[in-house]
């Protein structure tokens, strides 16, 4: 049984996220979704199976329930989550490979989250010097420990994807032709849910996510479903299903809207400094005055350590 369930966020953790976070809701959503996009992109470039990347996304979501996203650079947390998950799986990735991929994704050459695709190829843009690499590696290792600690080593992630396949089979939706489209759409919904700023993977168990994804996919294609409350067979009640369906369907719209509100979102990966700039523009402050000084000191110490 333990294999099929995930640890979920407690109400207190969710409350904390909203109340003690230094970010307004919309920025928080932007940070979450764009960072998850970054994780996905890195997973693709590292040629990791989607199951690995998805687990990294879930770990990251779990972690941000404990620590504020503003504590570390978003891309570092994303990279550390990928590092941990790949390490436990069949395809461990070296810090070096991960560093290279993130250097590329964060460079101006990467088409990720950019409205205008960069032209030409200038490798110098994403060349990673030795010292940059060591700095990156140190940050990742520190974050690895931090994440493991925050999660109390609950690194097992149960994904809804395999369950969804079983459910599709049960509903006789698995097969060729139209059925294939539905199955594919179910997987797409489940992967989209990873990006959802509502953090669906830490608020709902995999069986509920799988059921909701099937519901959405069936609706997308107008497939005929049983007349009865079939979701109850999969232990999902109407209310939970409704919530999840709305959640799954809204990801696209939310991000479209945020992009219109904040044009800087179309200029590559979202970083802490961009968020801070936006906050400043809105007249909000992040952290307190002394924070920065400490960071620099830390940085110097780290550089000395890495020698």
């Amino acid at each position: 049984m333990a294999h099929l369930v995930n640890p979920l966020a407690t109400p207190a953790q969710l409350y904390n996220l909203k109340s003690s976070s230094q970010l307004p809701d919309d920025l928080q959503e932007v940070v979450f979704t764009t960072t998850q996009c970054l994780t996905q992109a890195a997973g693709l470039l590292l040629e990791l199976p989607q199951s690995t990347t998805a687990q990294a996304s879930v770990l990251l979501a779990r972690y941000w329930l404990v620590d504020s996203p503003m504590m570390h650079e978003f891309s570092d947390v994303s990279a550390a989550a990928l590092f941990i998950v790949s390490k436990m799986g069949p395809l461990p990735q070296s810090a070096r490979d991960i560093a290279n991929v993130y250097a590329y994704l964060l460079s101006s050459q990467s088409p990720l989250l950019r409205a205008e695709k960069p032209t030409g190829d200038n490798p110098a843009e994403y060349y990673l010097s030795e010292s940059d690499y060591y700095a990156f590696q140190n940050r990742i290792l520190a974050l690895e420990a931090r994440i493991l600690y925050a999660l109390s080593f609950n690194t097992h992630v149960s994904l809804p994807h395999p369950l969804a396949i079983t459910y599709l089979q049960t509903l006789d939706f698995l097969g060729l032709g139209d059925k294939k489209d539905i199955s594919a759409r179910v997987m797409q919904h489940l992967n989209t849910a990873l990006l959802s700023p509502q953090m669906l993977y830490v608020t709902h168990q995999p069986h509920a996510l799988a059921t909701a994804a099937i519901y959405c996919a069936a609706r997308d294609f107008g497939a005929k479903m049983p007349e009865s409350a079939w979701w109850e067979v999969f232990d999902v009640d109407r209310e939970e299903l409704g919530f999840l369906v709305v959640g799954l369907m809204s990801v696209d719209n939310i991000m479209r809207k945020r992009r219109e509100d904040m044009p800087w979102m179309n200029e590559g990966a979202v970083t802490r400094s961009k968020v801070e700039a936006e906050m400043k523009q809105r007249g909000l402050r992040v952290g307190n005055g002394t924070k920065r000084g400490n960071d620099e000191e830390d940085e110097v110490m780290r550089m000395m350590d890495s020698r």
């Binding site: 049984m1 099929l4 369930v5 995930n6 640890p7 979920l8 966020a9 407690t10 779990r62 404990v66 600690y149 925050a150 999660l151 109390s152 080593f153 609950n154 168990q205 069986h207 109850e232 067979v233 232990d235 009640d237």
Partner: peptide, 19 residues
């Protein structure tokens, strides 16, 4: 009823906290 059955056989609620 199936619903009561489902409620009685709910998966355990799990959460996580730090170390």
């Amino acid at each position: 009823s199936p619903r009561t059955f489902a409620l009685n056989h709910q998966r355990p609620k799990r959460t996580y906290a730090g170390c």
